[in-house]
């Protein structure tokens, strides 16, 4: 464990809490992509199957359980409890355009051709692009609520901090996982445009709106 990984995990946890808070406090999931949230639930489910087969640490197990539970909790709030507020007209990104190629790629490029490893690889690839429906939704509506933009900033920062963690681990532990690093870089790059808007607008007290 190093400071980058820990702050990355905290940012990830913070993002999830912010999203749940937004939905709970406003009693609405307007502006949140149900498709991105469905893919995140799929990401956690396929990645953390090793909870059953492998114990790493209490921290690791606890965080994994929190991430799985919160992702299904978010789906419950979006698709059952506050279903009426779900903005499906703007959530039109086609999930199969991501899930199918990612599934194919995880069969082709992985560390080991075994079921658990392929599922882990699938989750890493899918996570890297799972935010696209959310970003697409913001580009369609042209704006995001401030709390939603805080959520996205925390969520994007998490993988950016993981990149620093991988640099650290490469130099100090000799650890290098090409699949995670490449996917993590792709994931972070997808947020760059959003980061720019967030810093130039939300940090100055304005709402996140897209330039016309």
């Amino acid at each position: 464990m190093n400071v980058f990984r820990l702050t990355g995990d905290i940012a990830h946890l913070l993002a999830i809490i912010l999203l749940l808070m937004k939905i709970w406090k406003t009693r609405s999931c307007a502006g949140v992509s149900g498709k991105s949230q469905m893919m995140f639930a799929l990401v956690f489910t396929t990645r953390y199957l090793d909870l059953i087969t492998n114990f790493i640490s209490l921290y690791n197990t606890t965080m994994k359980m929190i991430f799985i539970a919160s992702s299904y909790g978010t789906l419950y709030l979006m698709f059952l409890k506050f279903r009426a507020t779900y903005d499906s007209n703007h959530d039109t990104f086609r999930m199969e355009f991501l899930v199918v190629p990612v599934a194919g790629l995880s069969f082709l490029v992985n560390h080991d051709f075994s079921p658990l490893e392929i599922l882990w690889t699938f989750s890493i690839y899918l996570e890297s692009v799972a935010i696209l429906p959310q970003l697409f939704m913001i580009s369609k509506t042209g704006e995001a609520e401030t709390i939603t933009s805080h959520y996205l900033f925390a969520l994007g920062s998490y993988r950016a901090l993981y990149i620093l963690n991988w640099v650290y681990r490469f130099y100090f532990e000799g650890f290098f996982d090409l699949i995670a690093v490449v996917a993590g870089c792709v994931q972070t790059v997808l947020y760059c445009d959003f980061f720019y808007l967030y810093i130039t607008k939300v940090w100055k007290g304005k709402k996140l709106t897209l330039p016309a």
Partner: peptide, 10 residues
Amino acid sequence: MEEEQEHDEL
């Protein structure tokens, strides 16, 4: 499998 590395990250 000797090179196998467990996934210890989240």
